[in-house]
Structure formats: C-alpha cells, structure tokens
Simulated scan of single mutants.
Amino acid sequence: MNIFDKTWAWFTADGAWTDSGGIFQRLLEHLGYSGLILFFAALIAIPIGLWVGHTGKGENIVVGVTGALRALPTLGLLTLFALWMGLGLTAPVIALVILAISPLLAGVYSGIAAVDPITVDAARAQGMTEWQILTRVELPLAAPLIFGGLRNATLQVIATVTIMAYINLGGLGRYLIDGLAVRDYPRMVAAVVLVAVLALVVDALLALIQRALTSPGTR
C-alpha cells in the first residue's frame, strides 16, 4: 500500500472519527483554540485599528508593528512563553494572539484609512459626530477590507494552532506530533489534510458572511 492508501485506511478505520481522541474531538478542540485566540486578538486589534484609522494618529507605528509581528517566529514565541509560564494553555494563546493581531490590525486600520476623505468631510458637514461618522460611514465602507483582515487572521490561526500539540495540548496538531514521534506518516498526512480542509471550509463560510454583510455598492 502507498502512503495515500494508508492515509485513507486511517480515515476509515473503526472509531477514527468518534472515539476518544478521534477526529471529531480533535476538530472541536482545534476550533475552540482558534476561536479563543481570535477573540483576544480582536479585543486588542480592532479598537486600536479603528482609532488609528479614524484619527490618522500613530500610522507609522501601526505599519512598523504589524510588519514586525509578521516576522516573529511563532514556534520560537511558543517555546519562550512555555519556558517562562510553564506548560498549559496560557503560553500558546499569547503566542498565537500576537500572530493574529497583525493581519487584524492591518485590515481594520487600512479599511478605515481607505475611506474617501471627501465622504468623511461631507458627513461632518451634515453635523454627524465622530462616533456617528465611524459607525455609520467609515465602518460600512471599510467592511470588505476589515473582513479581509479577519479572514487572513483566521486562516493563519487555524494553520498555526497545530503547534499547540508541541506542548502536549490537543487539536488536529496532535496527529502531526504523535505521528512524527512514532513515524506514522499516514497519520501525519491525515493531519495536514484535515487542517487544510478545515481552513478552506472556514474561509468559504467567512466569504459568504462577508458578502452578506457588505453593502452591494461597496462589493
């Protein structure tokens, strides 16, 4: 049997999907970790991006920070925080939140900043407050770029959450790390396939949501 036949056999083995430690359990763990990381990253990135994009203050800092965050090695950060804080959920969450902040912050900031200044000035001339301009004018117009940043961050997080298994946590990366330890290559290939399919499905769902929430005039 070649590697593809063995991988298929692994997928179709009894209990592969429903047993303890099976695919469904690992999938839910992977989604749970990803959602938690994106939640904390959004709490940090979205308010900063909205403020910088609306006021124009700190633009150079944001550009520099997002570029620097993209260059950080995630596995190195994970190792650093694990050595500092010990094994557990805190260290990988912090490391991956730092990873997710960059695309989210860039998407929110660039989306707000890209709104035509003439449109913003017209809203001010009509007596709208700065909060009304941000929520009723800039946010609807910036929605495609903001959602693009969210999709980018989501894909990065889903792909990188696999490293959480490196410090004995769950998720689909468990198959990759455990398979590598015993040279079970079909299990490792299955892990790669599962993560790739999950990323594609989530991205497709986000694309549908983005289209539904975006005004037809800004698509």
Rank of each mutant, 00 (worst) to 15 (best):
I118L: 13
V195H: 03
Y33P: 01
Q132N: 11
L105K: 09
M128P: 00
R151N: 13
L80M: 14
F4S: 02
V193A: 09
S215Y: 15
L194A: 10
F81H: 01
V65C: 01
V157E: 09
E29V: 12
T66L: 06
L72K: 06
T214Q: 10
L31F: 12
V161R: 04
L83W: 01
A181T: 09
I61M: 04
G76M: 02
L213E: 07
I94Q: 02
D184L: 01
T160Y: 11
L198E: 03
T7S: 03
V202T: 07
L139Y: 08
V157D: 04
L155T: 12
A113M: 05
I112S: 08
G76C: 09
L77R: 10
A191V: 06
P103D: 07
L50Y: 08
I37P: 11
W84Q: 08
L141F: 00
I118Q: 12
L87T: 11
M128I: 00
L36M: 15
G67A: 04
G217R: 15
L96W: 03
A207R: 13
W10L: 12
I44T: 03
A45R: 04
T7L: 02
G22Q: 11
M188V: 15
L72W: 00
V115C: 12
V192P: 00
L104Y: 12
L43K: 07
A9Y: 00
L145S: 11
G88D: 09
H30K: 07
V63T: 01
G67H: 06
I37K: 07
L80V: 14
V189R: 00
R211V: 11
I48G: 05
K57V: 09
V63Y: 14
L205P: 08
G111Q: 01
L38T: 04
T90N: 13
H54P: 03
T119D: 12
T154E: 09
A95L: 12
L36V: 13
L172H: 05
L69C: 07
A100C: 06
G58L: 00
A199T: 10
T12M: 12
L134G: 04
K57E: 14
L38S: 10
Y109V: 07
A165N: 01
P117S: 13
A190V: 02
D19Y: 13
Y185E: 03
G217L: 04
D116V: 11
I44V: 10
T7Y: 00
T90D: 15
I209E: 02
Q156P: 12
T160I: 14
A159C: 09
P186G: 10
G32F: 10
T162S: 15
Q210I: 02
A91L: 05
R211N: 06
G86N: 06
G67Y: 09
G64C: 02
V115Q: 03
E138R: 14
Q156E: 04
I48R: 11
S110F: 03
W10P: 04
R174H: 05
L194G: 04
A91W: 07
L38E: 07
I177D: 05
I94P: 02
A42L: 07
G111W: 04
A190N: 00
D5T: 15
R136H: 13
A142W: 11
F11V: 09
Y185W: 14
V137A: 11
L206A: 02
T66N: 01
I163M: 05
H30L: 07
T119L: 14
E130A: 15
A82E: 02
I133M: 07
V195F: 02
T79G: 01
A165M: 13
L83V: 01
L31P: 01
R219E: 02
Q126D: 12
F40M: 04
I209P: 00
T18Y: 08
